[in-house]
């Protein structure tokens, strides 16, 4: 069965860059969200297996999304994809339940490695 992937970023360009970097052999259905609030709507419909989440977004940022997800049992795997490459930012999101941090601009090999590590890709 194909995996439901949600790509969350306020920038259409950033979403495009990420989608292009996903492994072509990964059986997925991709949905996109342009804000944190929109991401939570998709999540609450129960249709998200893996979420690629940006941090720096207007109104509701990635940290707030992670917090909301944690309050709601965090039923999906969150991979944070951010230009905020401070070590402290990476530590924070991992402590908040994200399984991994990938820096922008995204490296397709790094995504593949993370997906393999979590058994999402053989």
């Amino acid at each position: 069965m194909s995996v439901s992937v949600l790509v969350v970023d306020n920038s259409p360009m950033a979403r495009k860059m990420l989608v292009r970097a996903l492994p072509p052999d990964w059986d997925i259905t991709i949905t996109q969200a342009s804000s944190g609030a929109e991401a939570l709507l998709h999540y609450r419909q129960g249709k998200v297996d893996v979420m690629f989440l940006d941090l720096t977004m207007p109104e509701m940022d990635g940290y707030q999304v992670l917090e909301a997800l944690r309050r709601e049992d965090l039923n999906c795997l969150v991979i944070v994809v951010s230009a905020d490459i401070q070590e402290a930012a990476q530590a924070r999101v991992l402590a908040m339940g994200a399984i991994s941090f990938i820096k922008k601009p995204v490296d397709p090999e790094r995504i593949r490695a993370v997906l393999k590590e979590y058994g999402l890709l053989v």
Binding site: A14, M17, T56, D84, I85, Q86, K103, K104
Partner: peptide, 15 residues
């Protein structure tokens, strides 16, 4: 594109 490129540059400067 400029906004995203600036976002990545800002991230590097912030770090």
């Amino acid at each position: 594109a400029l906004q995203e490129v600036a976002n990545i540059g800002m991230g590097q400067a912030g770090a």
